[in-house]
């Protein structure tokens, strides 16, 4: 080792001798600027959330001044634009739930299955190829999925399911639900895989050392240990399904329906909002305010689902470390 440069030595020697040499010598403005920029960035999202809640709930409350909330929640007829308007939101809830359930039925097992495969079974090279491919699927615009549902999946369903030409209808909940399920697989798979990969390898080794096979290691050790992350992935996937608009507008149709038959046309809450907002309605009318009432209901539903899932995760998760 060569001797340190003498300039450094000199500087320290002088500093150590000077009065108050520990005092800050120069302003560090860059530090403050970074702090302010980052704070603003964080505030933008908070402010946006507050703004959305206000702009959503104020017109929604005005709507409930004119239409009793019980009529809205428990009425079975939804025809706000008709001459004799009815404001029972139930048909829209049926459409939304039906399609969400179909999508979840497709996406939860397939998404979790791919995650388990990627995390526990796939070789490194397979994982490196498959995970980006999966994430590309998440980047496809939903209008493409809608088109795919309408022009490929629906004809296929009409060919497979015999219904005397009546069902499946051109617009039906099944087609939209299936394609929506495919759409949210990557979200669920990718996030679940992240959660499983984060499980310490010591747990896997311990399980293998006790004579477990790979399936037992996956299902009895890794999945339970990653359960909170997996649940978060499920919730995010289902939230996307509830909030998804384009696929349902294109493939499920725009006619409210109280039947639980997935082969029939259904309108979801999001599809109503999109169609009505794009239509020719005057601001300030009751019809205009229904958009906000339905939007608020959607918001509350997703919010409650998030709350429940957080509870579930707290109760059942197996924390490591």
């Amino acid at each position: 080792m060569s001797a340190p440069p003498s300039t450094l030595v000199d500087k320290h020697a002088v500093a150590a001798g000077a009065e108050g040499f520990l005092r800050q010598q120069r302003a560090r403005n860059g530090e403050k600027a970074v702090f302010v920029v980052l704070l603003l960035a964080a505030l933008v999202s908070v402010a946006t959330t507050v703004g959305i809640v206000i702009s959503l709930f104020v017109p929604a409350f005005q709507f409930f001044d004119e239409v009793p909330i019980t009529d809205f929640l428990f009425g079975a007829n939804w025809s706000p634009t008709f001459a004799n308007p009815q404001f029972g939101v139930w048909p829209l809830i049926v459409g939304t739930l039906l399609i969400t359930v179909i999508a979840s039925t497709v996406a939860l097992p397939l998404g979790l299955g791919s995650a388990v495969y990627l995390s526990e079974y796939a070789k490194d090279r397979e994982r490196r190829a498959l995970k980006p491919a999966l994430e590309v699927l998440a980047g496809i615009p939903t209008v493409i999925y809608g088109f795919f549902a309408l022009t490929l999946v629906t004809p296929l369903l009409r060919w497979i399911i015999p219904g005397d030409g009546e069902v499946p209808q051109i617009y039906n909940a099944l087609s939209a639900g299936l394609v929506m399920g495919i759409m949210i697989i990557p979200t669920i798979a990718s996030l679940s895989e992240d959660a499983m990969s984060a499980v310490p390898s010591g747990l896997r080794q311990g399980a293998f050392a006790l004579g477990s096979n790979r399936r037992q290691v996956s299902t009895r050790v890794v999945v339970p240990a990653a359960l909170s992350g997996i649940t978060a992935a499920f919730v995010l996937g289902i939230s996307r399904a509830i909030g998804e608009t384009m696929i349902v507008v294109m493939a499920a149709g725009l006619q409210p329906n109280t039947s639980w038959n997935p082969l029939e046309i259904h309108q979801t809450m999001t599809a109503f909002i999109a169609a009505t907002a794009a239509g020719d309605i005057a601001t300030g009318t009751v019809v205009y305010k229904t958009i906000f009432a339905v939007g608020a209901l959607l918001f509350v539903m997703t919010f409650v689902m998030n709350m429940i899932s957080i509870r579930l995760v707290r109760k059942y998760r197996e924390v490591y470390e």
């Binding site: 310490p200 747990l203 311990g206 050392a209 050790v221 924390v319 490591y320």
Partner: peptide, 12 residues
């Protein structure tokens, strides 16, 4: 059987 360097009980 095997016992590891870092105790690795399952989170159960």
């Amino acid at each position: 059987g095997m016992v590891f360097q870092k105790p690795n009980p399952f989170p159960k």
